[in-house]
Design a protein around this nucleic acid. Sequence first.
DNA 1: AACGACCACAACCGCCACTAA
DNA 2: GTTAGTGGCGGTTGTGGTCGT
Length: 254
Amino acid sequence: MGQDDETTRKGPWTENEDFQLVFYVHMFGDRRWDFIAKVSGLKRTGKSCRLRWVNYLNPGLKRGKLAPHEERLVLELHSKYGNRWSKIARKLPGRTDNEIKNYWRTHMRKKAQEKKKTASGSPALSPSLSQCSSSSSICTSNPTATSIPMIETKERSFYDTGGVERSFYDSGATRVSDSSEEQEGYCGMDEIWKELDLLEVDSMKPFFDPYSEIAPSLPWDSCLSTSWTMDGQEEFAENTFHLTSKQFSSGFID
DNA sequence: AACGACCACAACCGCCACTAA
DNA sequence: GTTAGTGGCGGTTGTGGTCGT
């Protein structure tokens, strides 16, 4: 599939690349990854672009540790669905399958170690208890067990106050979160959003609200599709937007 | 202060499913 | 019905940060 030649970049994304990707996703929506990869001038595969967006750049993402209620939900859903991470992730607004996968892996490993310890050591309430209470949920010995002890915690995560929800997957209802909360953990992206604001991209603003739902059906998507054929799109993008990406690298970013 | 162990996160790879030609 | 292109998913690995010794 073409793009895997030696010019294809791999490894960590640079700020510049992030910036470009965000811009092009806003332009074309978050579906046509191969197209975006091509026209953006990013030396990345479409897959890579998608992954970067889905797991990191998407403004609807929460960052930071899973809240206790999220942990419980993960356990519950995993017992239901198994390793269907994307399915589980859809039930956890703002969380990605990758994140949940990582979480599960880490905690299951931890649990396996604890199990070993308790199996060889005293069966009494031991170190594992403190671990359990701290996470308030990771207490089953069998990850897939259906009887997951649900420890009710009144504790509410600071995430659980109405962060951006990925309603795309769930209800379809768009929600704009309290921006102060939204800032939490968004240091890097914040800069990008700010810079986007500063750009003349303002003309696009009516179409794009970075804190609204990710736009599988961005208005300009339909606008553009009325006047563009796919071929025309490519041509137009090559001519028009590639220039913009060059401006990014040369003009807006040192 | 140096070192190793552990953890969290980011990213890649390979496979599969879907879709348009 | 077949096939190539593309996106999505799950598994795995690499890396940087933190913590304990």
